[in-house]
Nucleic acid binder design. Structure first.
Length: 338
DNA sequence: ATTCCATGAGAAT
DNA sequence: TTCTCCTGGAATC
């Protein structure tokens, strides 16, 4: 699935182009007709991501309470946006400092290219023109000219959210459901801290992560993937964070020092911010020139260990190891990570 | 043309 | 642990 950064970008997309508008909600595919009918005609009032969960608020009516559309993309899920859509990540930035500093610079750029991940960025001629933007599990985003508005649904569209000027189509989600406020609170309570979620102070979030991880005898490689320990990390960030910290994924959380756990959290804060701003999981700092181009073109050139099994470690030359941990592929360097 | 595999995660066994 | 949900680009034949 998209790791947390993708979902935050999607939440910002909805914030920028849908919140405040009344929406026609439908299920072209037919598998979400009841839920769509509950939301149809309401005004979208909020858009938030917690970890990998997207929460879209819809206002109440005279007879009915506020409702929230809860979506989790799983591995395959994708949102396709069309119509009057702003696709520049810096336009979508919700934190004032980021937006103010960079808005003018890159105001009309999209992350381009269908197909393989890591396509180069691509300029967009005019921000006012109809366009398509795709935010999907793999984080590819495409931009291009759209035809008529709204476009016909393509494939199996579970939910279509249509305003006067913009449309969002959801396909292939793991979770798509309507929640009442109490259920949303329950969901939030079972999730670990997310540095980009606005509901908790950074300091408190860090402490919550350190406390929880240090009390567990499970390997840190599993704890980072446990959404109740920290929300938003997936298989790529898990492997890369542990390599960057030079920590053996098999060490129990209880065996890590507080400094090591704080370091992991702070590096996650940093990588997540970069991911939200760039739309890519850039886990090697400071790439320039040809190396940066290679990293954008090939996954194996973009990370320290992820999908690099059998290749020499960039740092020590040891062959990168691959094993299964809890049913997921774990990549790590036995030479560096102790 | 067909099969494989994935940046998840809950249920079933 | 294995199955299942369900999509699509990559790898393979």
């Amino acid at each position: 699935m998209p790791e947390g950064h993708s979902v935050h970008r999607i939440a910002r997309q909805f914030q920028a182009n849908f919140v405040g508008s009344t929406a026609a909600v439908s299920s072209p595919q037919g598998r979400f007709e009841v839920g769509a009918a509950e939301l149809d005609g309401r005004t979208i009032t909020s858009s938030e991501a917690i970890g990998k969960h997207l929460l879209l608020g819809f206002d109440g009516t005279a007879e009915a309470a506020d409702l929230v559309l809860h979506v989790h993309l799983g591995i395959y899920g994708a949102w396709d946006f069309a119509g009057d859509i702003s696709i520049d990540p810096t336009i979508l930035a919700s934190r004032a400092a980021v937006g103010a500093a960079r808005m003018g610079q890159t105001g009309m750029r999209g992350i381009g290219g269908a197909g393989t991940m890591g396509e180069n960025e691509e300029s967009i001629a005019s921000i006012g023109a109809p366009r398509l933007a795709r935010l999907r599990a793999g984080e590819q985003e495409t931009a291009g000219e759209a035809t008529a508005f709204p476009p016909d649904p393509v494939g199996q569209v579970r939910v279509r959210i249509l305003t006067d000027t913009a449309v969002a189509d959801l396909r292939g989600p793991t979770v798509c459901e309507v929640l009442e406020p109490g259920q949303v609170r329950a969901l939030a309570e079972r999730l670990g801290p997310d540095p980009e979620a606005p509901t908790e102070s950074r300091r408190h979030a860090e402490q919550r992560f350190v406390d929880r991880a240090s009390r567990s005898n499970q390997p840190i490689g599993q704890l980072l993937m446990d959404q109740s320990v920290v929300a938003g990390i997936g298989n790529v960030y898990r492997a890369e964070l542990l390599f960057r910290a030079r920590i053996d994924p098999h060490r129990p959380g209880s065996q890590l020092t507080t400094d090591e756990l704080r370091g992991l959290w702070r590096d996650w804060v940093k990588l997540l911010r970069i991911g939200v701003e760039t739309g890519q999981m850039l886990t090697i700092d400071g790439l320039r020139g040809a190396k940066r181009a290679a990293a954008l073109a090939n996954r194996a050139d973009r990370h320290w260990v992820y999908k690099r099994e059998g290749m020499p470690c960039r740092r020590c030359g040891t062959s990168i190891a691959l094993e299964t941990m809890q049913g997921r592929k774990l990549y790590w360097c036995p030479g560096c990570q102790l």
